[in-house]
Design a protein around this nucleic acid. Structure first.
Length: 140
DNA sequence: GCCAACGTTGGC
DNA sequence: GCCAACGTTGGC
């Protein structure tokens, strides 16, 4: 069981958009970065990921589950290497965890989100996961 | 194969 | 809106 963090600009694809998809989920397509693609290939069905709003909000707003493992990205050219996973919303954080909070928390200083802010799909350690769930008052 | 130039992302 | 960081492109 692994943990991840996936970023989206709310103006492009927001948590509300994701919630609206319900159990059917939504392919996380359009990723055009090899590091991000490699992480998606490592994802297993049942893995969990934080859903992060970049740009204006800059906060973790919810938790999604990987419901389909990596497959060719339907929005990419047929012979391209790009892939996507499918995710479904699992839980909305009662208290969104902001980037500022994360930066103020010494135990979260090593997060990829802090170290490499531009990577849109990133791994999260189980310790980081547990702490952020606590900060966000996640029920699960 | 190296590296400068350029475009894009995302925090501030 | 600005700018730093990073990835990609293209000339040599």
């Amino acid at each position: 069981m692994a943990y991840w963090l996936m970023k989206s600009e709310p103006s492009t694809w927001s948590w509300q958009d994701q919630l609206a998809k319900g159990e059917a989920g939504e392919p996380w397509d359009g990723v055009r970065n090899h590091q991000a693609k490699n992480y998606m290939q490592e994802m297993k069905k049942g893995d969990l990921a934080f859903f992060y709003h970049s740009q204006k909000d800059r906060e973790i707003v919810g938790i999604v589950e990987i419901i389909e493992e990596a497959m060719p990205d339907p929005t990419a050219a047929p012979d391209s290497p790009w892939e996507c996973v499918t995710i479904a919303a699992r839980e909305t954080l009662d208290a969104p965890v902001t980037l500022a909070q994360i930066k103020d928390t010494p135990d979260l200083a090593e997060m990829v989100l802090v170290k490499n802010s531009r990577l849109s799909v990133q791994p999260v350690t189980s310790d980081q996961w547990a702490l952020i769930c606590k900060m966000g008052q996640a029920g699960a």
